[in-house]
């Protein structure tokens, strides 16, 4: 796996992602990213926190439903 891959340091805009749109932000260095589509800008740690917020809606994200479980759902 190529360690020099361009995408290694890129992140998607959490605001645009909340609207179901993948937009790669521009990384200006020092872990700071800004979105070319909307006004959002932020640090990597903040962006990762926003990803976590997006996932909160998936109440069953950690649950395994086997075939038998699903018959009863």
């Amino acid at each position: 796996m190529s360690e020099s891959n361009l995408y290694r340091s890129l992140m998607r805009c959490p605001v645009c992602f909340s609207r179901d749109t993948d937009v790669l932000m521009i990384n200006t260095g020092n872990e700071f990213h800004y979105c070319p589509k909307c006004s959002f800008q932020g640090m990597e740690s903040e962006i990762r926190g926003m990803y976590r917020d997006i996932q909160k809606k998936f109440h069953n994200m950690g649950k395994r439903f086997t075939l038998e479980d699903q018959r009863a759902l």
Partner: peptide, 8 residues
């Protein structure tokens, strides 16, 4: 399965 634009 490499670094890609769809995953962090």
């Amino acid at each position: 399965l490499d670094w890609n634009h769809n995953s962090e």
